[in-house]
Amino acid sequence: MSVAQVDADLDPLEPTLQPILEQTSLRWIFVGGKGGVGKTTTSCSLAIQLSKVRESVLLISTDPAHNLSDAFNQKFGKEARKVDGFDNLSAMEIDPSGSIQELLESADGAGAAGNPLGGVMQDIAFSIPGVDEAMSFAEVLKQVKSLSYSVIIFDTAPTGHTLRFLQFPTVLEKALGKISQLSGRFGPMLNGILGAQGAPQMEEMMQKMESMREVIGEVSKQFKDAELTTFVCVCIAEFLSLYETERMIQELNSYHIDTHSIVVNQLLFPTQGSTCDYCNARRKMQKKYLEQIEELYEDFNVVKIPMLTEEVRGGEKLRNFSEMLVKPFEPPAEN
């Protein structure tokens, strides 16, 4: 540890995502940041780079406003599908709130027919804060586990609290335990009221809940392991974005999720002798925040990506763009 510290003091960490590519133990990579800073482009590029060094890569978007289809110019759905032009890169789009809705509806369909009390326990269970996110993640991971990908990249929703549930796995576990205990106590009584047809439903629901609890516990354990999981923060060199990033990093620290990379996107590099006042002023501001970033996050890999003059859409453009994640961009000479 001390050796690494000395090294970090001697020269700054390399400004690329190369360390992530080289860390072959990684299984889960999250890409997050405020809306509109280039999360999707970054996650697609990272997926493309990873597909070069790993056996198989899956890119999952949990953003309800799905952008993967736009980025690759190809329609993706709930099932993993190969990305055109890549042999070992697949992508899928899931709606975290959709999966829980479906689960509820299927349970309702089964429960509401016979008895009115069947849904009560369910309502209680789903009123636990954060349980919906945890459930949807559990659902996703269950799906993903059955498929064998060597690394999975999540393009998270900009609402930011995607990983909120990791903060209170203990609360969640306790609440679920209480509910199963409650239903264990009152279950026989309810069954007496409901008759024979209510009993199997109750049991089935309890089993579902129990398995969910196990999955959530497993997920939070995996996500907290720095060997398995890392978080890539994407931001732009502006105050609000930086502020959000700092908050996110602190939050991730409190959940014990590893994060050591920041991608600073949309940087302006006006060429020498440029007369664009707007660009020069903006460059000055971005420079200020870049300096602050370097001072504050000296133990992070800070990747600087320039603002492009075109939209990054389609496999080929993304492939070119992704090179900047591994080869530091050389800014043109300045005034």
């Binding site: 105050f239 602190q250 925040y289 602050q292 001072e295 504050l296």
Partner: peptide, 17 residues
């Protein structure tokens, strides 16, 4: 000032928290 000296501000904030 959080805008002019973000790094310093964030560091103070971290220790404060």
């Amino acid at each position: 000032s959080s805008q002019d000296e973000f790094a310093k501000w964030a560091k103070i904030r971290r220790t404060l928290d």
